[in-house]
Amino acid sequence: MTTSPPAASASTHPAPADPGTTPGGALLAAHDLHLAFGPTTALASASLEVHPGEVLALMGPSGSGKSTLLHCLAGILRPDSGRVTYGGRDLTAMSDVERSALRRSEFGFVFQFGQLVPELTCAENVALPLRLAGVGRRDALGTAREWLTRLEVPDVADKRPGQTSGGQGQRVAVARALVTRPRVVFADEPTGALDSLNGERVMQMFVAAARDTGAAVVLVTHEARVAAYSDREAVVRDGRVREQVRA
């Protein structure tokens, strides 16, 4: 496996400016989040810090609130109360447009089922975030192909997602998440639909590539073997973060 990420995006799409950290060194932080869906409490005073470049596993039983917390941290969900700060900026106070722009430029996402656009080729899927950021088609596709090579799936570049295996599709999703060199990648059960062997390969490549780019990773998983790729874990139970343990 190569150790350095493709460099082409550095010229065509520079990494976002350093957003800074809090005095405690956190890049991203949830402060006392509360969120309910009707009568169901999803988050009850959840607080958490994510530090630059670290891989943090959010663990906990089904329904504990770990995915909800990830969605709040990523600015997809807005909590009923409490704040999410990113580099000192209050995500919860931003407009939808501002949060969308932030997600596009500084965050990356990997979900359980890839969520690739079925009508586009894999290379076009990976190039999509770059295109949305204004990078020209040729440069974006070139960078996308480099990322697919980096993740050892160059052969799927011209295939549509439906023509790839589950493991290949997740590698494409990882490439798409990292192609803009985001500061934070949010991954919700990224290997949940894969068998053990494919899951391992995806996690190895994902974490290695994220570390190479310096991105922090917030990884929701209920699998300990996946969490073992993290630097530390935080356990969510009944909508609260029970602990944060430094590795």
Partner: peptide
């Protein structure tokens, strides 16, 4: 239970 989880995960990271 939490202390045990932390210790297990520490060893799992090392093995990984």
């Amino acid at each position: 239970l939490d202390a045990q989880r932390t210790e297990h995960l520490r060893l799992m990271r090392e093995l990984t």
